[in-house]
Design a protein around this nucleic acid. Structure first.
Lengths: 191, 191
DNA sequence: GCTCGCTATGTCAGTCACTGTCATCAACTA
DNA sequence: TAGTTGATGACAGTGACTGACATAGCGAGC
């Protein structure tokens, strides 16, 4: 007989998203989430810093994936490095994650505190990408600009990827989105 | 004899910032803020939606100032409109607000939930500027790009304005910052 | 001058997010 | 076999935030 069912973190993650979708973020109590998988409220807070974080703790991996992607990219311009990393990170979002991502996004957009948390995570992502670009020899402010572009493109591509009727992979969407931005930058360079 | 001292909202704002600076955001209770100006905790929440908002409720005016500035600017390119609005808005931040702004910024940067709220407010500002630019006939995605640039430049200029040793007015700093961005955009346009 | 309604406030009870502390208990380790 | 470890439970406590109701000056209308 085992002491506890394994994978408590995952079970909490799954249960939380399910309940947030069903009855809304505010209407769901932490105790409810924990009890639904046979745990206590106290245990929830040992796995996640707060009620919002259960939707965001995968962001560390995402950030690491971007950092690794930029570190491993073949020598190129700032946006070239970003493009490589973007493609590589996008591979992580396979088809079976699409539905989950859609639900998660829907919950976040419906709640202000969750939107705040998402913006903070994206800001942290941009900072990490900036740092990674600096390590590849990109100077400021080009590093910051390219990193902001990277995050912006990723966000836009992600939203498009989970849109109804979208059939392209995230990698394809991201590539196309970046192309649009390159064109745009050239168009609007002149004040 | 009056029913209540007038200007409760302002008194709460001032007291809150003072206490947040002295003893930190988390270490300050809402009851403490309210009592320090002769009010109750319950009344605090009638003036501000939550404990963070007491530092941010001026943002509505700021957003309106940007929107008005863009609406009233003489015909120009997207970044031209932004430049006009930026200069006009910057006038609002007179010398006597510098110390207050510095304290506020210091408190926000020291606390994650406050940083989250700030990012949300900036995102809302960008949305409003985008909308204002569209009303001036700017099409997407140029409107979005110019709006993001507007907010970014404002943020960077603001931080510089409250930096130690900075003597230029916010309008001057903003103008210089925008110039740097224009140069940068031309430099990094080619991928 | 009296009454009535308005409005900002006080009071109080309640919920819930989050924390500190101590106990438990199976698994691992020496 | 005894001691240690690690994830959990139990429980009490704090503080943010809300809903409901009471109160007290002020002004409007009579």
């Amino acid at each position: 007989m085992v002491r506890w069912e394994p994978g408590a973190t995952d079970r909490l993650r799954v249960a939380a998203l399910e309940l947030y979708v069903e009855q809304g973020f505010e209407q769901t109590t932490v105790g409810e989430i924990a009890n639904s998988v046979g745990l206590t409220e106290r245990t929830f807070f040992r796995h996640f810093a707060d009620k919002k974080e259960v939707l965001f703790d995968g962001q560390d991996q995402l950030r690491q994936a971007f950092v690794d992607g930029i570190a491993a990219a073949p020598p190129s311009t700032p946006l070239g490095l970003v493009a490589t990393a973007l493609t590589q990170v996008a591979e992580y979002f396979t088809e079976d994650r699409r539905t989950w991502s859609r639900k998660r996004h829907q919950v976040i957009q419906a709640n202000q505190p969750l939107k705040e948390r998402e913006l903070l995570k994206l800001a942290g992502l941009a900072t990490a990408v900036t740092e990674a670009l600096r390590k590849r020899g990109i100077k400021d402010p080009a590093a910051t600009l390219a990193a902001e572009t990277c995050v912006t493109v990723f966000s836009i591509a992600f939203v498009q990827w989970i849109a109804d009727g979208e059939t392209r992979s995230l990698a394809e969407v991201a590539r196309d989105t970046l192309s649009e931005f390159r064109i745009l930058a050239l168009e609007t360079a002149e004040p």
